[in-house]
Amino acid sequence: MEIIKAQDIYRTFVSGNITTHVLKGVSLDVQLGEFVAIMGKSGAGKSTFMYQLSILDHPTSGTIIINGTNTKELNEHEQTEFRLNTLGYIFQDYALVPDLSATENCMLPLLMKGEDWDKAKNKAVEMLTSVGLETRVDNLPSQLSGGEQQRVAIARALAGNPKIIFADEPTANLDTISGNAIIDLLGELNKKGQTIVMVTHEEEYTKYCNRIVRMEDGKIIKEEVLR
């Protein structure tokens, strides 16, 4: 079953007299439960493509249907709601709220969904425990290592029970050991049925992926099915 269907996506940036075509007619389908890696050199357009898929940005033209919803038809408010209810994000530099503890960071999507405080807190602690941070629940992001912060980011993404997780180079700021641990964690999640779309540079981090989509100059040049 297709959970993402992107068709003929173009993304063009205009700055003064300069027009840059970053995506040039990209199409991609992602199946429910798939773990897809988008790879390519710097400037290939992989992150831009992921931003379109995750409706953080809007394509210049083309259609993206996620979980049966045509994202073009959503207004700004509906897009925010849609991201809250359907998508989870893991950013390269963790993107945690610095003033909130690990637990409170994970509680954000739950509270926004309307869960009561205690229920949200219990679920957040449960998520943090599932990523191995049961002893760090009350720590602020500044009191955690890079790997731990990325685990909190994963726990936060999972807390909202998303249909799809988008991970933008989640290991880029981590050492090899921490990076591998994060990839193992994502692999575990995928095994449990979680759909994941990940942008990465590193071949070694695609070991749990079902498919690798390779991009160059704003186009998909190759798709490799691994399993």
Binding site: R83, L87, P109, M112
Partner: peptide
Amino acid sequence: RRNIGILKGIGISERA
């Protein structure tokens, strides 16, 4: 600003 963008990105409303 970046944090605000991320909060919006993960579905926190502008009003909040």
